[in-house]
Design a protein around this nucleic acid. Structure first.
Length: 825
RNA sequence: GCCCAAGUGGUGGAAUGGUAUACACGAAGGACUUAAAAUCCUUUGAGCGAAAGUUCAUGCGGGUUCGACUCCCGCCUUGGGCACCA
């Protein structure tokens, strides 16, 4: 019989999914293991070969853990709210939920055809009202705890998509989705105070097992810096301008002050600024320049002086002029900086506009200092203070805390930690998202007094606030959500006072649903609670979470934040800790042939269905594991796929070559060697899976099969079944078929992971490498464990080596046990 | 500009201080076949050599070491991230 994956693969998939072997069991006495992959956005394009890579990798881990006796939860679901579906709906006039249903069906069928061991009974869908009820519930908790607030702010506005974008969604000043140039626009937006958690989001990284580069990226994104707020008194007014600085050691060289164009000092003191028209014009121009362009180093520095305004340097008590410049950002620090010769932008600006400059830091390099002193070059590093009164002679690092203490004793400074991270814009003016469950009541607003007054959360018993049906899905021209056009839905009663009120018509961003989905898999059908306490206690945290590097600063950070918030409000037992993921790894992208990104426009997209149809799911799984290191980007190579298929066929054909009984008597040398190799392979495959070195795990199995093929003997039944067990996470269908063919009644995927025999792995003989001056000159077979003396004897006896040494003097002999001997002459 | 990865045959890659090029693809030759496909066998980093051998080669230049793809210093290139964060 020929290997025919088309026949055997669907057969075993039916067996697995019908018998429910992959179902995670609640209330089990076994140790749990929760493995998770990022759930996909079910796009109309179907499954990508990139999904296949990471889903197979974690499937291998899930399958291995089951075989190791764990109660494994490996779930799957759909992150189905989002713009592509909405855009398709706009174009074709089909309801997004219809498209979503169709797409998820395609995805599910494709996924089942790959034999991934997901527990399909726990499937979730973020667009299901039963699911988003709880996404809305979380929003209400954020609101009640003061972490959700409405604010009129300058937001990033995409004129093409007609939505506000989070800072994180703006790529190089353009909209992440459509590429249009992002503008600034003032809008009332729901904001989430993720910044309250900045410190914990950094600190708690120490307690989790994430790849180092993931930790680094998150830390950089949050961008913690330690410094001080320094107060600059304004002449003629009882007021200060506050400046955040990390370089308080340079305070004595501060000769002018720069404000961000949007700094509220300007608005407040309009009357005092002599050239206010010019300043306001500058502010208007700055509004439509992206932060990235504003802070671009190659760009020419621009600025305008606030004529009529002077401040005093709190250290030197000298007068300083005040300027505005767009490279100073409103949102960072206090939106103001003091300027001196120790910052390149300040330096450039002072030279351009003829503002006085002074230096106060001496670099160690004498030559450089000459230039710095003469204001020919800007020095930004740490050095030794001069021109700094009582602090002269101190190093920058020791001076900083002393200067802060000195200034704060005068009430002019205080230490401060600042973050790059900004609050999260949570409103979207779109249809296909979770409605924000808030109601605005005029009556409550008039009596409330506070800025948030009038906003009332929908009562929890009235959740979910379901998306109403609309005829048109596109956002309105005014930028409001299409929901705003449905008067019947918008008009409601205030949950607090019962008067006429209006619903919030904005929806949530697509990360809202993925913030907490790991909790829902645990208890997907609970209509009373977010998650059952005892189930959460058993299953959380996620033991191993894999996803793309591109989600490190978005989804991964947001979901850690939301979990910490839920922990704080005790939405689940706090004993499970405040980090949702114990371990986080990431996969490399699968590129198109030739190393370019796969895309429809380039026509280089590989459809996994085609590969499954032509070669089989096991071949696709195996190939994607074999193609290269898991965390590395890798180009697809269709020609390479046949290698994996050939390997599986070899196994199929060789499985006929079994000894029906345990080898009688002493097996031949050949047989012993083969068994030794098998045990080495068991060891290697097991270890490589843990390290995600799937490529070398596959190649070691290939080596074993090659040796098996070359051997004159067969394997006995025990050895064959051990091999099938280690193969089964990679090629589960083939393993299952051969397992059953060999007369086994149970399923291969339910077997115990095999143990290797230490004794069989120990070598009796080793290959001793003989070097002279570090160059390989000979290889001798020797007894394992031989001593240096024995080795020396052996080597010096060798004619070949003797000839090479000749009359030279042996200076030294380096010996590495069981490996190498190096004669230095 | 800053930060982080990576650079090895024709190609994907292996080796993390000790035999550089495992495994796989591709290519060439052969066996089987009327023929082709499939399969199997052999060869396959480059140079010199009839062979035994031997020299060179892991982006480039130095260094440490008995010994370096691996560690250190300086550069180049590619990919990713960030945007002068005061």
């Amino acid at each position: 019989m020929k290997y025919n994956p088309k026949k055997i693969e669907p057969k075993w998939q039916d067996v697995w999914y019908e018998t429910g072997v992959f179902k995670a069991k609640n209330g089990s006495k076994k140790k749990k293991f929760y493995v998770m992959v990022e759930f996909p956005y079910p796009s109309g394009d179907g499954l990508h070969v990139g999904h296949c890579r990471s889903y197979t990798a974690l499937d291998i881990i899930a399958r291995k853990r089951r075989m190791q006796g764990y109660n494994v939860l490996y779930p799957m679901g759909w992150d189905a709210f989002g713009l592509p579906t909405e855009n398709y709906a706009i174009k074709k006039g089909v309801h997004p939920s219809v498209i979503t249903k169709k797409n998820t069906e395609t995805f599910r069928t494709q996924m089942k055809s790959l034999g991934w061991s997901f527990d399909w009974s726990r499937e979730i869908d973020t667009t299901d009202p039963k699911y988003y009820k709880w996404t809305q519930w979380i929003f209400i908790q954020l609101f009640k705890n003061g972490l959700a607030y409405k604010a009129k702010i300058n937001i990033n506005w995409c004129p093409s998509c007609k939505i506000g974008l989070a800072n994180e969604e703006v790529v190089a000043g353009n909209c992440e989705r459509c590429g249009a140039k992002v503008e600034k626009r003032e809008k009332d937006q729901w904001m989430i105070k993720i910044t309250n958690y900045a410190d914990r989001l950094i600190r708690d990284l120490d307690s989790v097992d994430y790849l180092e580069k993931i930790k680094t990226q998150q830390k950089d994104w949050i961008g913690e810096s330690h410094g001080a707020i320094v107060k600059f008194p304004v002449e003629g007014v009882e007021e200060f301008i506050e400046v955040f600085t990390t370089r308080v050691d340079t305070i004595f060289s501060g000769t002018f002050l720069i404000l961000a164009p949007g700094h509220n000092f300007i608005e407040k003191h309009k009357g005092k600024i002599e050239n206010i028209e010019e300043v306001l014009k500058y502010r208007e121009d700055a509004k439509n320049v992206s932060d990235m362009d504003r802070t671009n180093q190659d760009k020419d520095v621009t600025g305008v002086q606030l004529k009529g305004i002077l401040v005093r340097n709190p250290a030197t008590n000298e007068e300083m002029p005040v300027w505005v410049a767009d490279f100073v950002l409103e949102q960072y620090g206090s939106g103001a900086v003091f300027a001196d010769a120790h910052d390149k932008r300040d330096f450039k600006m002072a030279k351009k506009y003829g503002i006085a400059l002074r230096t106060s830091i001496k670099p160690d390099d004498e030559l450089l200092w000459q230039k710095v002193k003469n204001l020919e070059e800007c020095f930004e590093g740490d050095g030794t203070l001069y021109n700094s009164a009582q602090f002269d002679g101190l190093k920058s690092a020791e001076a900083r805390p002393m200067i802060i203490t000195w200034l704060s004793s005068k009430g002019l400074a205080q230490p401060k930690v600042s973050y790059k991270l900004r609050d999260w814009v949570f409103s979207r003016q779109h249809y296909w998202g979770e409605p924000i469950p808030m109601v605005f009541c005029k009556k409550c607003a008039s009596t409330g007094g506070s800025a948030q007054a009038g906003w009332q959360p929908v009562g929890e018993k009235d959740l979910p606030v379901k998306l109403p049906n609309v005829k048109k899905y596109q956002p309105t021209d005014t930028g409001e959500s299409p929901l705003s056009l449905i008067n019947k839905w918008v008009e409601t009663k205030c949950p607090k006072c019962g008067e006429d009120a209006k619903r919030e018509t904005d929806t949530m961003p697509n990360w809202a649903g993925s913030n907490w989905y790991y909790l829902r898999y645990i208890d997907p059908k609970n209509s009373k609670k977010l998650v059952d306490e005892s189930l959460a206690r058993y299953w959380m945290p996620v033991d191993w979470y894999n996803g793309g590097m591109e989600h490190t600063t978005l989804h991964l950070l947001y979901s850690r934040f939301i979990f910490k918030f839920l922990w704080d409000i005790k939405a689940f037992p706090t004993s499970i800790g405040s980090e949702p993921y114990k371990k986080r790894t990431s996969h490399g992208m699968v590129l198109g042939e030739g190393g370019i990104k796969m895309s429809k426009s380039k026509g280089n997209v590989i459809n996994p269905d085609v590969i499954v149809k032509q070669y089989g799911a096991d071949t696709l799984r195996l190939y994607e594991m074999f193609m290269g290191p898991f965390e590395q980007m890798i180009p697809w190579d269709t020609k390479g796929v046949v290698g994996s298929r050939r390997f599986l066929e070899k196994i199929w054909n060789l499985s006929q070559k079994i000894y029906p009984v345990i080898r009688p008597g002493t097996p031949s040398n050949d047989g012993v060697e083969l068994r030794k190799l098998l045990h080495k392979t068991i060891k290697k495959v097991g270890e490589d899976i843990e390290l995600m070195k799937f490529n070398t795990a596959v190649s070691s199995m290939m080596e074993f099969v090659n040796a098996y093929q070359a051997s004159s003997e067969g394997l006995d039944k025990k050895d064959l079944s051990d091999f099938l067990k280690i193969l089964s996470p990679f090629a589960p269908h083939l393993a299952e078929e051969l397992w059953s063919n060999s007369g086994q009644k149970e399923l291969c995927c339910e077997q115990k992971w095999p143990k290797y025999d230490e004794k069989l792995i120990e070598e009796e003989n080793i290959l001793l490498i003989v070097q002279i001056n570090g160059k390989v000159r000979d290889k001798i077979i020797a007894k394992s464990g031989l001593t240096q003396k024995e080795a020396e004897k052996l080597v010096l006896k060798s004619e070949k080596i003797q000839a090479l040494i000749g009359k030279s003097e042996v200076k030294k002999i380096v010996f590495v046990p069981n490996k190498l001997i190096n004669v230095v002459i």
